[in-house]
Computed example of a mutant assay.
Amino acid sequence: MTAATANRWVRLARRNLPLLAVAAVVLVAVIFVLAERWRRGAFVFGLATLLAAGFRLCLPEEEVGLLAVRGQTFDVAALTAVGGAIVWLAVSIDPLGTG
């Protein structure tokens, strides 16, 4: 592997690191859902969405990779609204069978 190729892979990995971090948190959420812990899975999924909003807000356009879909204001507002709604729903729904 040449130095130019290695440098290209490092830049690609660095640029997509925020997306990989969000994907790892989503994977944890999926594992919770598959283990029949759907409320925890929904909560963690909401946190992953809020994490994506935080990355989009704090990192420059060059470093957020595929998390940049539209303008920064729209992306942050949409991700925060959806993530906040998911977290709120996950914590506000009473668990079944605890009447």
Rank of each mutant, 00 (worst) to 15 (best):
M1T: 15
A3E: 14
A4D: 15
A6M: 11
A6V: 12
N7H: 10
N7V: 02
W9R: 13
V10M: 10
R11P: 03
L12Y: 07
L12W: 07
A13T: 01
A13G: 14
A13P: 02
A13V: 00
R14F: 00
N16K: 01
N16Q: 15
L17C: 09
P18G: 04
L19E: 04
L19A: 11
A23Q: 10
V26F: 15
A29W: 01
I31E: 06
I31C: 08
F32A: 14
L34C: 12
A35M: 13
R37P: 02
R37Q: 15
R37W: 04
W38S: 12
R39H: 14
R39I: 02
R39D: 03
G41A: 03
A42I: 04
A42N: 06
L47H: 02
T49D: 01
L51I: 03
L51Y: 02
A52E: 10
A52K: 02
G54L: 08
L59M: 13
L59Q: 04
P60R: 05
E62G: 11
E63F: 02
V64C: 05
G65T: 12
G65K: 07
L66S: 11
L67R: 09
V69I: 13
V69S: 03
R70G: 05
R70C: 05
G71W: 13
F74D: 11
F74W: 15
D75Q: 06
V76I: 12
V76A: 11
A78M: 12
A78N: 08
L79D: 00
L79V: 02
A81T: 02
A81D: 00
A81V: 02
G83E: 04
G84Q: 06
G84A: 02
W88E: 05
V91G: 00
S92L: 02
I93E: 11
D94F: 09
D94H: 12
D94L: 12
D94M: 11
P95V: 14
L96V: 08
L96Q: 06
L96W: 07
G97D: 06
G97N: 06
T98V: 15
G99T: 10
